[in-house]
Nucleic acid binder design. Structure first.
Length: 598
RNA sequence: GACUCCGUAGCUCAGUUGGAUAGAGCAACUGCCUUCUAAGCAGUAGGUCAAGCGUUCGAAUCGCUUCGGGGUCACCA
């Protein structure tokens, strides 16, 4: 039985016996004891002073005494400071916890989700240009939250809704037609997505040129922006695409195929994956039947010009268009359609959308509409809204060429990892392939950790120099801790030291370093719950860093192989195993791998 | 303008269901590699938690006001 729960039960019993205060054990709040006081868990008594009509110190003392006699096999001592009752567990309890809990294969598996299906939609790129830094945050967050939801007992379907149609794709296509002279990714020696992106930039350049010359000929800038011939051509091309024009369609398929090949390579390289792909070219016409449905229900209303609207003023929102007067879809129409499609395909009542916070309003509206339509999946919609990634030079803008390309960034990180590793001569005994894999693990680990350690909701700063730092609060430093432990475990195996204690043996006294690490390990399931409930990979990232940091303190202070007490030695091997497992499992929740050697 | 998110050390961030003396990392400075990997550890210095008022046993955390920054308010996606 979990000692934290036993303690809560005992406190609840104590409150009742001593003060006739009835509280459910689950609702009792315990927090980790502050470092400067003795103890593992702290019960704050202030909330009960009114009912108990005694001073905080007196209440704390009486509850403490009660617990001590109630569960003497768990508690070593208690102390009361002001209104804080600090509980010191017996060292042998931690030993017991280590063997029966922390080392268990499923220690990090929470079952609260009960196998319920959840769809996590993330990545969702446009096919007119390659992935950039902002996409990386999205992809890492999406993958990580999928892992975290799985760890919470949900059955997760990872989906990618590819935006493969629209005016922006036509821009790339048109520029390719004009200036491409038939080059291909092979002939250009470029990844397909980068090649297509090149023409997207080319389009923009041409467009600017045309606008300038129009302005020079005396046309107002506003008008020139609308009248530029190349823009008109792109719009015409989109129309042709929608009419199924063979030539346009073929070009579209060819160029998209290039992009997909490029994306797949990138996805593989950054270690994210999907269970299902949706393509907007298949879904952009959906949603019209839902509009019809809404009209029938009286949720939507049709105006004279034929456009369809929903009035959300009662909800504190606005009037919102859901279908244009010409009968074509807008963004939200499509999203209504795909929400329905997702539900039909997988039956997920819960659906997580990993989408930037500039779309907060859109998702509030979407959720409201689904609710009004009485959709069974309306309440399960969650917009995992994350902040922009800023550069020291300011906001990233594709058109102004201030984006950081995802592929370039990853290779730079890997290259830096290689340099650092070679500098330190740490690849002795590695084959070339193993070394390459290590550089990738470290470089990518650094990048993922850097992007995931920050609260997703917050806008964050990407400082290129800091992100390639491998020391301190970084992924590689955690990976390094894992590699160190692995070295110990290898040596223990060589020496034939087991991690099991002889039958009937236990350890009565641990050192403070061991205890504070074990305290941390005990919080892992709670942290997983927290991360799941808050949709916050950063909770896990910061927790794992704490574990690694605390273990490192133990590592420099306490020797394992020089320990003469064989029982203690075995215990410490088990201890190392549990820490390694926690770090590994935690990092995998972030999508970060850990190396056995580095 | 309306709505919304944010403001914590020089920098990047934790901490926010109200709890003890607000914590890390980087950068700066001092130490520690003949003992399990120094991508580590120990230490020094660095704070009016944007400002003010309020709520109460207690506020970085809740409320109001002000200042500063971002985002959204398209028959674009």
């Amino acid at each position: 039985m979990n000692p934290e729960f036993l303690l809560k039960e005992s406190i609840a019993k104590g409150l009742e016996k001593e003060f006739s205060i009835i509280v459910a054990p689950e609702s009792i709040l315990l927090e980790p004891t502050r470092k400067d006081f003795e103890g593992s868990l702290t019960f704050v008594v202030f909330p009960y002073i009114k009912q108990a009509k005694l001073s905080p110190e007196q209440i704390g003392a009486r509850i403490g005494e009660f617990c001590k006699t109630d569960i003497p096999n768990i508690i070593a001592s208690v102390n009361v400071v002001k209104g804080f009752l600090n509980i010191v567990f017996k060292d042998s309890l931690w030993v017991d916890q280590l063997y029966t809990n922390f080392l268990r294969e499923d220690f990090a598996q929470v079952t609260d989700g009960k196998g319920e299906k959840v769809m996590v939609e993330y990545s969702s790129p446009n096919t007119n240009k390659p992935l950039h830094l902002g996409h990386l945050r999205n992809n890492f967050l999406g993958y990580s939250i999928s892992q975290i939801l799985k760890a919470n007992g949900f059955d997760v379907v990872k989906a990618n809704l590819v935006n493969d149609r629209g005016i922006h794709i036509c821009k790339s296509m048109l520029a390719y037609q004009k200036f491409g002279s038939g080059e291909t990714p092979q002939s250009a020696g470029m990844k397909g997505d980068h090649l297509v992106g090149k023409y997207y930039v080319a389009f923009d350049k041409e467009l600017k040129k045309e606008i300038e010359s129009l302005v020079a000929s005396g046309i107002a800038e506003e008008q020139a922006k609308k009248d530029a011939p190349i823009l008109k051509e792109a719009q015409a091309m989109l129309l042709k695409w929608e009419q199924g024009d063979k030539e346009v369609y073929q070009l579209w398929e060819t160029m998209n195929a290039w992009v997909y090949e490029g994306f797949n390579e990138s996805y593989k390289n950054i270690g994210v994956s999907f269970d299902h792909f949706y393509y907007e070219s298949n879904t952009y016409l959906l949603g019209k039947d839902i509009v019809e449905e809404g009209l029938q229900m009286g949720v939507f209303n049709k105006r004279e010009d034929g456009s369809v609207w929903i009035d959300l003023t009662a909800e504190g929102l606005d009037q919102k268009l859901v279908l244009r007067s010409d009968g074509t879809s807008v963004y939200i129409t499509q999203d209504l359609g795909t929400a329905e499609l997702k539900f039909k395909d997988f039956g997920c009542k819960r659906s997580v959308y990993v989408v930037g916070n500039e779309q907060d309003y859109h998702f509030v509206v979407l959720a409201q509409i689904l609710k009004k339509l009485n959709k069974p999946y309306a309440d399960g919609l969650y917009h995992m809204s994350y902040g922009m990634v800023d550069l020291p030079s300011g906001k990233m803008k594709s058109r102004e060429g201030t984006v950081v390309d995802a592929d370039d960034l990853v290779s730079e990180m890997v290259e830096t990892a290689k340099l650092r590793t070679l500098e330190q001569g740490k690849t002795d005994g590695f084959t070339g392939e193993q070394a390459q894999k290590l550089y990738h693990t470290i470089g990518l680990g650094a990048l993922k950790y850097y992007l995931l350690k920050v609260d997703p909701k917050k806008r964050m700063m990407f400082n290129p120099e800091e992100s390639i730092d491998f020391q301190g609060h970084t992924g590689p430093s955690i990976q390094y801790t894992y590699a160190r432990i692995s070295a110990i475990l290898r040596k223990a195996a060589e020496l034939g030291i087991t991690s099991d204690l002889p039958k009937g043996e236990t350890i009565e006294t641990l050192n403070p370093f061991e205890i504070s690490v074990l305290e941390l390990l005990s919080r892992f399931p709670t942290k997983i719950r927290e991360a799941g409930a808050e949709y916050s990979p950063s909770t896990i990232a910061n927790y794992i860093f704490e574990v690694a940091k605390e273990f490192n303190r133990f590592y420099v202070e306490v020797s394992i192989f020089q320990e003469t007490d064989e029982i203690k030695k075995s215990f410490r091997i088990a201890f190392c195993k549990a820490v390694a497992k926690t770090i590994k499992d935690g990092m995998l929740l972030l999508g970060i791998e850990v190396p056995e050697k580095m």
